[in-house]
Design a protein around this nucleic acid. Structure first.
Length: 478
RNA sequence: GGCGGCGUAGCCAAGAGGUAAGGCAGCGGUCUGCAAAACCGCAAUACCCCGGUUCGAAUCCGGGCGCCGCCUCCA
């Protein structure tokens, strides 16, 4: 096995060995949402990407300090407040809570820190003061701007020079700026906007400064991984680097990690196109684990094209995993038998899925390894039933599962309850049991007509019956 | 226009110099009262095109074509 985790760094455009600044501690900052509307699958993907990275790093022995912020003061929140008449703080509070719920429902573990911008205003003001003192920013008419010309690495993350940026510029000319590419660190507040006292008058933070202030406060001047969606590379992350390094004169972040965007029909999911799928809505149709499996079947850097049929396929694929676990749990006779062939598959799997994850967190490859092993496991169950090897195999499969955040339910909970909750079916479990009993009796008398009637009826309302050597079991149709 | 990326069977998707994982859909078989599930097999000479480097290219280089992202708020 490779002894170093490889991670693709947007800054160098290469995979690099993950070498923390200090021992085995990895500090991660991932950009969270601006809380002015419901979380969509794009937010979900970003959260799940860094959730899995965190879970894996911890699994292989790293200490991970993970911060994910809430931007709770911003133009978009102010606009939303104007449209709805709801105070900005209330809008921020509502969507912050909703985001936390949505992420919980997606099985995303809570980060170590969840800072809010409004709780770090002092740090933000101090940081801006430092940047001004070092000659990289200037107050102008109540605002403070960062001078991109004063920072000679500007553009190093997004791979473009200021001249190239200027060529395609579409932002409004702002008289207060010395250079059209300069961006606001602090914005003087207009009437009715949230504001804080500052050396430059009443105002609020610009968009990018909060992430620099909060990440450096919580994780230190230099930390290992900074993440977010690819759409944040420019200008957000580019500006963060400029601000932070202008203030500290040391490397801000060692590895920049960006996840691909969600697409619908090969087009980016975005508000302007109007093709947003909210996390809540997706969760009302598909299980959280099917959503995770769908996302994790793509490499985190690639775009993931979302569609109902693709999601249905993921649900079916997940069901295949749970059916295998169900078949295994149905075996009651313990024995000391071993299965050499399964043992070989298991040994291969143990090495390969870890290797896949070591290679830039390649969950899609790991998922492929998993399905390989599932076939071998089913084969073993058919041939030998319960073996000590099977027990070991299930344990290893659960181990990958806990890294990806899937297979965390009991097979019955998934095959029945989870799916019943997604597909409201007009029958309860007790009634199903009664019908199954009746059918079993009919089958004993070889009354196939009645037996098939019952099965057909249940099938028509979405319940599938399976006759096994241990009796009839049921599950909810996909 | 500038910068970055993508193009792998019917669909989705890994792989990034050594002869192409996996999932879904389809078809045939085993098993079953019939099914389902599972397993076995088929479709399957699947790497956008044209050049080049190499003993060897899906992978590296050059040139096309098509698509996408960023350059304005995005995760």
């Amino acid at each position: 096995m490779e002894n170093k985790i490889k991670v693709y760094n947007t800054l160098s455009q290469q995979k690099e060995d993950l070498i923390p600044y200090n021992g085995k501690t990895v500090r991660i900052y991932a950009c969270g949402p601006t809380v002015y509307s419901s979380a969509h699958l794009g937010h979900g993907r970003a959260a799940i990407t860094f959730d899995v990275i965190t879970r894996f790093l911890r699994k292989v022995g790293y200490k991970v300090e993970y911060a994910r912020n809430f931007t709770d003061v911003d133009d978009k929140i102010i606009n939303k407040s104007r449209e709805t008449g709801i105070p900005t703080e209330e809008i921020a509070r509502i969507y912050t809570e909703e985001y936390k719920n949505d992420m919980f429902n997606l099985g995303v573990e809570t980060p170590t820190y969840e800072p809010k911008v409004t709780e770090y205003i002092t740090e933000i003001i101090d940081l801006i003061k430092t940047i001004i003192e070092k000659g990289h920013a200037y107050p102008s008419g109540g605002d403070v701007f960062f001078s991109i010309k004063s920072f000679n690495g500007y553009g190093k993350l997004s791979k473009r020079t200021p001249d190239e940026m200027l060529a395609g510029i579409r932002i409004d000319i702002n008289e207060k700026k010395e250079d059209p590419l300069d961006f606001a660190l602090w914005k003087g507040s207009k009437p009715g906007e949230p504001w804080w006292e500052s050396p430059w008058g009443k105002g609020r933070p610009g968009w990018h400064i909060e992430c620099s202030a909060m990440s450096m406060k919580l994780l230190g001047k230099s930390f290992e991984i900074h993440g977010g969606g690819k759409d944040l590379i420019f200008p957000h992350h580019e500006n963060e680097i400029a601000q932070s390094e202008a203030a500290t004169r040391v490397e801000f972040v060692k590895y920049w990690v960006h996840n691909g965007v969600i697409q619908i029909n090969r087009e980016k999911m975005s508000k302007s196109v109007g093709n947003i799928i909210n996390v809540k809505d997706a969760l009302s149709i598909w299980s959280k684990e099917a959503i995770r499996l769908f996302l994790l079947s793509h490499h985190y850097q690639n775009p993931a094209d979302f569609s109902e049929s693709a999601m249905d396929e993921s649900e079916t694929a997940l069901e295949r995993l749970y059916i295998m676990l169900k078949r295994a749990s149905n075996l009651t006779i313990e024995s000391k038998k071993e299965d050499i062939e399964l043992q070989n598959s298991l040994n291969l799997f143990k090495t390969k899925w870890i290797e896949s994850m070591y290679d830039d967190f390649n969950t899609a490859d790991a998922v492929g390894q998993l399905f390989d092993l599932v076939r071998a496991t089913n084969r073993s169950i058919d041939a030998f039933g319960w073996t000590t090897t099977l027990k070991e195999t299930i344990k290893e499969i659960r181990s990958l599962g806990s890294t990806l955040g899937i297979l965390e339910l009991s097979p019955d909970d998934y095959l029945k309850k989870e799916k019943l909750s997604k597909k409201p079916i007009d029958i309860d479990e007790e009634e199903i049991s009664h019908l199954i009993e009746e059918r079993t009796a009919a089958r004993k008398q070889k009354n196939w007509k009645r037996a098939d009637e019952i099965r057909t009826y249940l099938d028509s309302i979405g319940i599938i019956l399976e006759d096994t050597s241990k009796g009839t079991i049921w599950k909810v149709k996909s």
